[in-house]
Structure formats: structure tokens, C-alpha cells
Amino acid sequence: MRAWLLSDAPASRRQARLGRLYAGWLTFRGNTLAMVGLAILAALVLCAAAAPWIAPQDPYAQDLAMRLKPIGTPGHLLGTDSLGRDILSRLIWGSRTTLYIVTLVALIAPVVGLLVGTVAGYAGGVWDAVLMRITDIFLAFPRLVLALAFVAALGAGIENAVLAISLTAWPPYARMARAETLTIRNSDFISAIRLQGAGPVRIITQHIWPLCLSSLIVRVTLDMAGIILAAAGLGFLGLGAQPPSPEWGAMISEGRRFILDHWWVATVPGLAIFTVSLAFNLLGDGLRDVLDPKSGGSK
């Protein structure tokens, strides 16, 4: 199997593609820190998927007699919050919200950015000027302030928070994609495909995108930490997920009132945010090595 995958002369397109993926995996596997990041994220996905089964308690069940119990209380491994809800269970259910936000933002922001950036870069002229000025307008506002304005206009709630974060996150991707497109546009291999009669849509999607994509993916994974924090920030301000739904940012916000006497209520979700952010950063670093076209499948 291994020999088949790493074959010097693959017999079919499928074998070549699988072989390339496998070679990329081998490079990635060599990077211990990136593997740690991947493991944490895999655990997060598992947690979210299996939340109903692995969560020891109902995340919404209140028990005022058991409020603000410290870490290690029997039955409440990570303690309870001000309404006596089990923090561990809320954390596990909260991973669903976190994943939801991360996935949606990761789908919207880079795609919008890539589209705007490459079109502006490749078309040039008026298109470039108009699209880039719009980008500049978005960039001129502090991110959280802009997101706040959007949420205020759209109404509080998790979907609107995602939308607001995505809308504020795309301009840097657009700038990056445009800069790359400008250097790619004049290269000989683009000239060559133009001489084959390829149109602009094909050139942008088939030839420019693949080259922008690797740096974009790396950038997105590195930005993921910021996105989680922005979502938590909105939750903390009461503009993201609404109580009683378990969201990590909102949990910190609730714990704030007790932070001096009952530190774990705010600290535990904080640590969860920290761990996931770190995992994304590690993953991003590892991906950068794998996605470099020169190291991708050179074995």
C-alpha cells in the first residue's frame, strides 16, 4: 500500500492524487506541534459530536442548592456556576457553538475575500479601484466595533454574530489575495494558458486560486484564534449566543461577577478558548510547511 502510494510513476490520476496527499501527510506528521494542534481539534470535534453521550449532566439543569461548587466536587468535575449548572457539561455542549461559529466564519470570510481580491487583482482598472476602496472602508473600522454595529443592526443572536464577524474578517484576505494575484497575473504560465484561449473565469478559478489558497488557508487557521475570541467577545458583551445556551464567551461573562471568590467559573471556559486558539495556531504553522508547493510531494 505504502509503495503504491509513493510510487514514482503512478498509473492513474487517482493514484497520483492519493500519493500526493499521503506524501503531504508524511510531512505534516513529522511536525510534532502541528500534530498536537490537530489532536486537540479532533478531540473538540469528537466532543461536539458526542455531546449528548459524554456530558455528565444536562447543561441547562439548574440546581440552586449546588451553586458555585469548586472544581473536584463529586458529580461536578469542574464545579458549577451561579445557577448550579455543571460547568463540564456546559463546556462540552458549548464546543458545538464554538465549532459552528468557526466553521461558518471559515466558510464565508475567506471565500468573499478570495473572490474580491482575485477579481480586483486580475481585472484591474475600475474594478480594482472600486473593490479595493470598499475593502478599505471595512478596514478603517476596528473589528469589534464594526461587528457590534452589525449585531446592533441585525439583532443579537449567534447567526448574526457569525455574519458580523465574517463581514469584518474578509478585507485582509481580499488584500492578500489581490497582492498575490498581481504577482501571478504577469507570470509566464498565465500567459501560456491565455494563449490556449482560456477565459478570465477559468484563469482565476483554476490557475490563480490554487496559488492563493495555501497562504489563505494558513492565514485563516492563524486567524481562527482571533475569530473565536471575537465570538467570545460578542458573547461576553451579551450580543452573541443568548442565555441560557452554553457558549464559552457568554460563560466567562457570567462568571465575571464571581471572579474573585469563585475563579473557576470564568477561568475554565477561558482555558477552553485558549486551548482551541492555540491548537489552530499550531495547525496553521504545520499546514504552512505542507502546503508549500516545493515540499508538498517532493519525496
Binding site: S187, D188, F189, S191, A192, I193, H207, P210, L211, P293
Partner: peptide, 12 residues
Amino acid sequence: FQDPYASLHPRH
């Protein structure tokens, strides 16, 4: 083209 290092798409 002149430069075969520049005239092929690096990811194709």
C-alpha cells in the same frame, strides 16, 4: 517561453 521555471504552473 524562455524560462521553463516560470512558464509552468507550480501546482499543476
